[in-house]
Design a protein around this nucleic acid. Structure first.
Lengths: 255, 255
DNA sequence: AACAAATGTGAGCACTGCTCTTGACTTTCG
DNA sequence: CGAAAGTCAAGAGCAGTGCTCACATTTGTT
């Protein structure tokens, strides 16, 4: 049985060279992105660094948007890989620890790659619209990881229903329902909504640190403050009381 | 006694005309910003709309950065005005209601002015660095309003210390300390840190809605879900239990 | 009316994304 | 083996950008 249904032609030397050139372009684009930011990404500058005339790169990348899409997918996957690796460090039953690792990994990557983080979670690039069919899969890796985490905790009876269930959530967003049905989650509405809040809160805290440059954004949070936030968010998600292994949560992030 | 120490010269007609022209430029810039986004703001396009040659606007605005700064201050003040107005709708003792009004006002303005919201709280504009001495005052209006709200609640004995004080916050950020001392806040460290988390979480939830276009950001939260988030955040800040006027919080936002 | 300051003009430089033609090179097929 | 087909880089060119500068014009004041 062949690996794929279509016959896989072996790559010709030309195709190999072409693939390598595209890789080089993405690599150079990633560097420019990291230095100058997303909106200032210049195909001509990439061409210069590649040692080639500007029009030549259009042989490999359709236009600037295409390069942005490649960089978007690239960044999403790098973030997803690091989050997955950090989570996998801890045993599957240590839900609080895994949540902490997930949040810390997101923050670490964001602080190391602020421009790429901005491309993913910041204000949209003016003329650019990401093609959903290519970016949703890598773009949803982290939230899927978080939801899988919460669902696992719930199934293990380790997700405490918050005591303040007086506030009921009447409607979930269509996207949340899609995620829930798509993943076959078991968590009830209230906890799912709380998970979404935890999700956005995590990225809010990280974004304020990464984008913190304007008047309102002068939040150079020390590691301890972020660790506190993570601990509170874990409790908010329902991971606090039931898994009370933590009188002192493992708030410090590895390395 | 003169109003100010320096003798205030009455504005000459020339100065009046100049001020009006600058106002026009800012107004046109605001429109361009709202339509095309921050990074695509073009001085030449503004000049065209103003019916003048491109180099003429440099008589009024030093460069593109200067215009961005003016638009930044303009947006911060508009947001601050709307938040203040929404908060002032409710009596000073209705802390939970005022918190809800604050959050709803931020979200409403952000959804109405996504590009300007992106300029304030999104990824930084590539070559641009906001001058702190001119933007910090308008840029801190909302967080100051939130902190004043929490401090008032604390002083009135209406801010419940969370029961999970097992998680202690060891260090506040310098910025938080500066805000606390600058405002003469009475709230203790733990609640101040929670206030900061609530602050960033609020903007995280709003940002995901406003910027929600990429793969990870498909969070078209319905009003009810955001209202739920606001209610949970109010409780997180400590406004939940003690002010138990709300078996059902006033989760709907006015208008 | 005359002067000087303020304002508008147009050319020009360096940069951007992108298109198109031209020439050279490589692979493939008759 | 040679010709056709495919691939790639180069360079010119178009329209747009921020910004500067010399020059002309308007305008308020003396």
């Amino acid at each position: 049985m062949p690996q794929t249904e279509l016959a896989v032609k072996p790559p010709t030397p030309r195709e190999r060279a072409r693939a390598r050139t595209i890789e080089d372009i993405v690599r150079l684009g990633r560097e420019h992105l990291a230095v100058h930011g997303a909106a200032a990404l210049s195909l001509r500058a990439v061409a210069r660094d590649l040692g080639v005339v500007s029009s030549a790169v259009y042989r490999y990348v359709e236009n600037r948007e295409e390069l942005l899409t490649l960089l978007l997918i690239d960044a999403y996957n790098e973030l997803g890989d690091e989050v997955d690796a950090a989570v996998a460090t801890l045993p599957v039953t240590d839900f609080a620890g895994r949540f902490n690792a997930l949040g810390s990994a997101v923050r670490r990557w964001a602080l190391r790659e602020p421009a790429r983080y901005g491309l993913l979670f910041g204000s949209p690039v003016p003329g650019y619209q990401a093609p959903a069919e290519r970016t949703t899969a890598p773009g949803t890796r982290v939230i899927y990881a978080l939801m899988a985490l919460l669902d696992g905790a719930y199934r293990a009876g380790r997700l405490a229903a918050p005591d303040d269930q007086a506030v009921i959530v009447p409607v979930l967003s269509d996207d949340l329902e899609r995620i829930r049905s798509g993943m076959g989650l078991a968590v009830p509405d209230g906890l799912l909504a709380r998970g979404a809040l935890v999700w956005t809160s995590l990225f809010g805290a990280v974004s304020f640190e990464v984008f913190g440059q304007y008047g309102a954004g002068t939040f150079a949070a020390p590691d301890e403050l972020f660790a506190h936030h993570l601990a509170v968010l874990a409790e908010l998600a329902g991971l606090g009381q039931s898994s009370q292994r933590a009188g002192r949560q493992t708030a410090d992030h590895p390395e």
